[in-house]
Design a protein around this nucleic acid. Sequence first.
DNA 1: GCGACTTTGTGCATCGGTTCACAAAGGGCT
DNA 2: AGCCCTTTGTGAACCGATGCACAAAGTCGC
Lengths: 224, 224
Amino acid sequence: MSPSQPRDRGIPEATVARLPLYLRALHGMAERGVATVSSEDLAVAAGVNSAKLRKDLSHLGSYGTRGVGYDVEYLVYQISRELGLTQDWAVAIVGVGNLGRALANYGGFVSRGFRVAALVDADPEVVGDTIAGLNVEHIDELEAVIKRRGVSIVVLATPAAAAQEVCDRVIAVGVTSILNFAPVVLSVPDTVDVRKVDLSIELQILAFHEQRKAGGPLMAVDSQ
Amino acid sequence: MSPSQPRDRGIPEATVARLPLYLRALHGMAERGVATVSSEDLAVAAGVNSAKLRKDLSHLGSYGTRGVGYDVEYLVYQISRELGLTQDWAVAIVGVGNLGRALANYGGFVSRGFRVAALVDADPEVVGDTIAGLNVEHIDELEAVIKRRGVSIVVLATPAAAAQEVCDRVIAVGVTSILNFAPVVLSVPDTVDVRKVDLSIELQILAFHEQRKAGGPLMAVDSQ
DNA sequence: GCGACTTTGTGCATCGGTTCACAAAGGGCT
DNA sequence: AGCCCTTTGTGAACCGATGCACAAAGTCGC
Ligand SMILES: NC(=O)c1ccc[n+]([C@@H]2O[C@H](COP(=O)([O-])OP(=O)(O)OC[C@H]3O[C@@H](n4cnc5c(N)ncnc54)[C@H](O)[C@@H]3O)[C@@H](O)[C@H]2O)c1
Ligand SMILES: NC(=O)c1ccc[n+]([C@@H]2O[C@H](COP(=O)([O-])OP(=O)(O)OC[C@H]3O[C@@H](n4cnc5c(N)ncnc54)[C@H](O)[C@@H]3O)[C@@H](O)[C@H]2O)c1
């Protein structure tokens, strides 16, 4: 048994979901010239419990120094590597409407490893337009574009009715990572990862809690 | 102990997060004229396990009929009521840039109980514009607008640097539900609910799994 | 009206994730 | 060089969520 296992295969899903949060906090610290950070400080910056943070980081390896903390630069590198951000990911956005346009114009994810490599739409009015420096291509070209540009992540921003069909087509040409904004449950083989962003669901969850707050503690009036 | 408790206070958070999913599936069924649905069918439509679905619904009350299933209309009503969607929620969008505009123009959440009641921005170029039929108001008017329009949910779509300040101000005038699109951890009292949507985090999670898929099973080459 | 069949509602085992709390490690000060 | 102080890494208890599996409930056909 070697004394240091560089990294453990099989990082808990909950940990993976928090690594980007730590990374963001660390980037901020690096910019402010912070060289070293304790789990306590980093935890505060990321809005989590410090024990949880340490356990999360321990899944990547033993990168801290007891009595001191973590080296910011080094930790940024280790987390980036673990998340696969040391390589470049080509992203295609399918559906260039309100939302697709906002995403295409957004500089925030280009910054870290993600590059919008293609825009695809079905509307002849939109196809051929240049948005954020990219030509919008026709949906008929979907498969060709994905192969030509080496796209490995597809962002779905079409209307709900078109989402499953586009999804099936991109999977057929080998895409296994999809970010879905359309309010539908996509049916995919379990070799494919789908993450969804659903604004409407978030609002409904907020409304639920808001209702409880408004009526809750005092509204002991049972409706029976 | 009364035989039927209409509904139990204290619905698990995980259940609350799925109710909107069930509701969406049920709306689709109602539109297609389906009168009754079994937990199995509804579970498939919502992409969850049927036992989980039944347990979730059992937290609202005993609304099914054994041997038959659930009445679609009735269940829509019960879930809507539980989520607080039988009332109207006034939403303000602060930050009317790429994303804020897309949200303002989006018809999807207006449909169910949510109404965009105000748009607020700091940029004099934008203030005064009419977007989606609404006048964009100046950030100086933030507090006044929130009170005047009875806004109870605020959507934050400002740059990260401005988010905490806007957040503090809306909380100061009594807002307790915030949907945050800015990539920052907001610091709020625990009487306030914040939900965040972070595109960049979703992409990073996808990249992590994508990397594993690509290198994973065959890349047994330990880097030591 | 009765029996067979369908489907709910839930007890229970299990699992993944969180948090506490502390022993071991390491740096820095004297 | 040795001691003290800080901070990590993790064992173990705890907590909420999941999913199986089945008894109870209720419908429908005969
Ligand atoms: N805009 C928002 O704020 C928002 C919020 C939450 C969810 N959504 C969801 O995101 C999706 C897009 O929303 P939007 O507001 O941008 O809608 P939109 O109608 O403005 O844009 C949809 C675009 O998809 C294109 N399209 C239609 N069918 C297509 C196909 N088969 N292949 C390729 N492109 C196709 C259309 O031409 C259009 O340009 C919808 O599913 C919507 O429900 C949007
Ligand atoms: N556009 C996207 O696809 C996308 C995706 C993920 C996250 N985000 C995040 O959403 C936020 C908005 O993104 P965007 O692309 O719309 O940016 P944007 O720059 O296009 O828009 C920001 C808007 O906020 C306004 N603003 C600035 N300071 C303000 C203040 N103090 N009060 C009120 N308004 C103020 C600006 O005038 C501008 O109109 C950013 O935090 C961004 O990181 C955007």
